[in-house]
């Protein structure tokens, strides 16, 4: 029993951590600027392809991870400066349509450059195979992902709660005008914040490419569960995104084990139930930086 359940639980946690990381990025951007970033999945996919390109030129997985994440962040900053920032003063519908358009352009570009089907994204051999913990055997790569995503979340928390810039971001979420009146250039804050969100998406995207396979729609397929994570966890709650992501991941993978036919729909059921009981989501009142 436990031998059969344990891999699914690990699966669920890994999947859930992906949802959580993507959801946190979405939340950061949504909270500070009201932008619903439908291009978030494209940044994940872009990072995957960039990592693939670096590795196929002989770079190691870790070099590809760092390099592709940084390059994607640079692209994110450019997109924010050139396009999204122009719409901050408008109603959110504008940026939603803009980022939707960008995601379509991105997906077709990936198709043009790298082809419509999966590219062979290979994780290094020492991360393949499995690791035995007692009599439970688990895939090594999934354990690596879990470890990496825990490090990423910890780093994000340290950034938000232990640095001056993080403090200013938390302030600006509450009252950007007041932050400006106290001498902070909020435009720079918006860009930094967007870049952090994209960086989280990029890291998730690169790890996901090695797990789910890399094709033009990879990131977008993770985007819907990530939005549901935001809704379940509570709009704007960091802890809510983490708990919500894990909850969805575990529910989906355990359902896959016992009732495979329902595995696609179960997260929507979960969302409906949570919203009926707590309309603002599990941690909706706390506020992301509360």
């Amino acid at each position: 029993m436990i031998e059969r359940l344990a891999p699914e639980v690990v699966n669920g946690i890994v999947l859930g951590s992906f949802y959580a990381i993507v959801a946190i990025g979405l939340s950061l951007i949504m909270n500070l600027t009201g932008t619903i970033n439908l291009a978030h999945g494209s940044f994940m996919t872009l990072a995957g392809y960039l990592a693939f390109a670096i590795m196929s030129r002989g770079g190691s997985f870790w070099v590809a991870l760092g390099g592709a994440a940084l390059l994607t962040m640079v692209v994110g900053v450019a997109v924010e400066r050139l396009f999204i920032a122009r719409l901050y003063k408008r109603i959110p519908l504008y940026s939603l349509l803009l980022t939707f358009g960008l995601s379509l352009i991105a997906e077709e570009s990936f198709r043009l450059i790298w082809g419509p089907s999966s590219v062979p994204f290979a994780v290094p051999t020492n991360l393949q195979g499995s690791t035995a913990l007692g009599n439970i055997v688990l895939p090594t790569y999934r354990l690596v992902i879990m470890g990496a995503l825990v490090i990423v979340i910890t780093a994000l928390l340290l950034f938000l709660y232990r640095t001056r810039l993080g403090l200013r971001l938390r302030g600006a979420v509450q009252d950007p005008d007041m932050m400006a009146a106290l001498g902070t250039n909020t435009r720079v804050l918006y860009t930094v914040n967007f870049a952090v969100g994209v960086l989280l998406a990029a890291i998730a995207g690169i790890f996901a490419a090695g797990l789910l396979g890399l094709q033009p729609t990879m990131g977008n397929s993770l985007l819907m569960p990530a939005f549901i994570t935001v809704v379940i966890g509570g709009m704007g709650s960091l802890i809510g995104s983490i708990v919500g992501g894990l909850l969805i991941g575990l529910t989906v993978s355990i359902t896959t084990l016992y009732l495979p036919a329902a595995s696609e729909i179960v997260m929507y059921v979960l969302m409906a139930v949570v919203l009926l009981v707590r309309p603002r989501g599990l941690f909706g009142e706390a506020g992301i930086f509360g």
Partner: peptide
């Protein structure tokens, strides 16, 4: 400002630090 506009979720010390 009018109504003081504290960063209510931040501590008093953080309200000073960010400025």
């Amino acid at each position: 400002p009018e109504g003081r506009r504290m960063f209510a979720n931040l501590t008093a010390g953080e309200n000073l630090e960010l400025a």
